[in-house]
Nucleic acid binder design. Structure first.
Lengths: 201, 201
DNA sequence: GTCTATATCCAGATAGAC
DNA sequence: GTCTATCTGGATATAGAC
């Protein structure tokens, strides 16, 4: 590849990323239907026409983000699972990571939101629906396995493991929403309070 | 008022209610921007033109619902507070009521959702924003007072009362979302698991 | 009070020049 | 690769007949 081609590729990738990052923030705040392609154009400084050079439609941007978000979260969960740690340690790490991630309003929270948004909404592209239907529960299964491990080790309470996983992610999700709404003023709770739902003392 | 007038008033009220109920369900599933006035018309069987006889705009329907929802929830919280019960009993009642309410997918859950939706969204009518900003935190204050009472009584853990209230509603909200997404298959957890975050044992 | 028909507007997507 | 100008469709809201 010539010098110029390499450079062009780089610009292309950057533009693409710019569009995705901006769209992510807008989608989480306004939803798919509530976000105008004009806004993405304005906030990125990329002309409306050019956006269609990178993505076929608004829906495609959305679907791309859903795919990325789910993949990112699942990968993190699977990474955690295979650490050589006790279940108790893994659970603490998970909660800590999630709470911290939300507290500093990183992209992590937006990734969580857009998934939640897509999961409740009826008006999202079929492809995004499909991804959610098949991939979103992976993290629940991973977490359930960790809880099972913990029950064998004696550190985790004896409720149904999958239900505990669902409870964990639901709680985190609820807190993340709260944080998003009430913003900087609100500090995520200490992980120990949440841990009392899951661990024997 | 003549006989016919009374009857007309009744029909008018019913139509109004019909529009609101239908709109509520649609808004929670699709958001404000994602819901078409045509859909409300189709699902109620009320012609599009007639809807504008009852409400000035889609936004007005939305704002009306927000007002109703917040009022309903705040009233319930204040009612609970003034019962002659121990704090522990009040907390149990609150959790039980909320979990049960969500489990049978009553309007209660939709009321919660539309508030959450409005609270995160940037694209909602100014009036709705205003209501949320001033009225939505009332339930947090009420619940915080109940937690304080419980701390005096010795039943509640010694964390910041307001933060516990926020945690309680966030958790409930997260679970309600989860329920809405995974539907009938999912049963809300037993209240005792959640109680372990708040009560001394 | 209720419907049908219509005006108006605006957003998504495309075409074509540079 | 990038922009501006434009087409097209669909949604909100209104007008006017019954």
């Amino acid at each position: 590849m010539s010098r110029n081609k390499v450079l062009n590729e780089k610009i292309k990738d950057e533009r693409r990323e710019q569009i995705l990052t901006t769209a992510l923030r807008l989608f989480t705040k306004q939803g798919l239907a509530g976000t105008r392609i004009t806004e993405i154009s304005a906030k990125t400084g990329i002309s409306q026409g050019l956006i269609y050079h990178y993505f076929r439609s608004k829906e495609e941007i959305f679907t791309t983000l859903i795919r990325e978000a789910i993949e990112k979260i699942n990968t993190a969960a699977l990474e955690l699972e295979k650490q050589p740690l006790t279940a108790k340690e893994k659970i603490q790490l998970a909660l800590d990571g999630l709470l911290k991630g939300f507290d500093k309003k990183s992209e992590t929270s937006d990734f969580y939101f857009i998934i939640t948004h897509a999961a409740i909404s009826e008006n999202i592209p079929a492809e995004a629906k499909e991804i959610i239907a098949t991939q979103n529960e992976i993290k629940y299964h991973v977490m359930a396995r960790i809880f099972s491990q913990g029950q064998k080790e004696g550190s985790v309470k004896n409720h149904n493991a999958y239900e505990m996983a669902a409870l964990l992610f639901s709680t985190i999700n609820g807190l993340a929403l709260h944080k998003a709404i009430y913003g900087k003023g609100y500090k995520m709770p200490n992980k120990n309070i949440l841990l009392s739902m899951f661990l024997n003392d």
